[in-house]
Design a binder for these strands. Structure first.
Length: 288
DNA sequence: CACCATGTTCCTTG
DNA sequence: CCAAGGAACATGGT
């Protein structure tokens, strides 16, 4: 999936092309994706409405809708909540084009269609704001500070790597960027959370911010590019593209680099499993 | 066939 | 109620 940076990039691309567009029709091809809504309730809540804004909270996409249903003067506001899961993608395509195999939901916007495609069907697109209430601070926001992090880690015996994946602690980090941030901060992934000292917390907050900001700057590990077959410039494709692999190597210093030399000290990068997820680290740069 | 994959939620156990 | 661990969800790539 897209972690925070990938969602941020997607939102930045969607925002200008979706703002002001009216949802003409909603097609649900995989009902599970819109739970707890069903095709009828989702459609009823969206059709006829205008997308006023597209925002991000952690790894969630928030589509702010207005107008339509309630008529003039009584515009109730609705938020459509999207999550890409592990393999979700969103893009616009012409109405007459064949939909991808794993299309879950489409929003008919008139001239073209917003497609939510997701091979593993772990994603979500619904009206449920409940998940958002449990989220911790944005890692790039002012509320995420070394003091706050230190306090949150104080009573936890869990390894720091596992703890940073907890979205109630800080919201938006995923498996890739946690490994990257710990490497940059020089912290061992197995370090018990409560053993992180003030100096390490300060380095960690800085490293997390750097890693995410850099990923956003470079346009994410899953590059976003203009659809080569698109005839209009408001069409784009969120997926593979050529020519960005150099950036990938440059930015990801440990993730998926098991047995390859550390870019800092040439020691082979190691991999092990924590909480059923792969952790990558340099045994020399990240001491206990 | 085996194992691995950018995430979250639910269930169990203590 | 909480913390922690693990399975489940579902499909595809290697």
């Amino acid at each position: 999936m897209p972690e925070l940076p990938e969602v941020e990039i997607l939102v930045r691309h969607l925002q200008p092309v979706l703002r002001g567009r009216v949802i003409r029709n909603v097609t649900v091809l995989r009902p599970k994706i819109v739970r707890p809504e069903n095709a009828a309730t989702l459609s009823g809540a969206l059709v006829g409405r205008t997308i006023r804004d597209v925002r991000r909270r952690a790894k969630y996409l928030l589509f702010e809708l207005a107008g339509g249903k309630t008529g003039p003067g009584r515009a109730t506001q609705t938020t459509l909540v999207g999550h890409l899961g592990m393999t979700g993608r969103m893009f616009l395509q012409p109405k007459d084009r064949l939909l991808p195999k794993h299309t879950t939901v489409t929003l008919d916007l008139g001239r073209n269609v917003l497609v939510f495609e997701d091979t593993r069907y772990f994603g979500r697109l619904n009206l449920d704001l409940g998940a958002l209430e449990r989220l911790g601070p944005e890692p790039l926001g002012n509320a995420f500070t070394p003091a706050m992090l230190l306090a949150a880690l104080a009573r936890s015996t869990q390894p720091i790597k596992v703890k940073l994946l907890d979205q109630t602690l800080v919201a938006g980090l995923g498996n890739i960027y946690v490994s990257e941030a710990l490497f940059r901060a020089g912290i061992h992934p197995r370090c018990p959370a409560r053993r992180i000292n003030p100096a390490a917390a300060t380095r960690l907050v800085a490293a997390i911010r750097e890693v995410l900001a850099e990923a956003i700057r470079f346009g994410s590990t899953i590059p976003l590019s203009l659809d080569p077959s698109a005839s209009k410039n408001d069409l784009f494709y969120y997926g593979q593209s050529a020519g960005r692999e150099e950036f990938y190597d440059e930015r990801l210093r440990v993730y998926d680099r098991a047995a390859q030399p550390c870019l800092q000290c040439a020691t082979p990068i190691r991999r092990f499993v924590q909480a059923a997820r792969s952790t990558y680290w340099c045994p020399n740069c990240q001491r206990r």
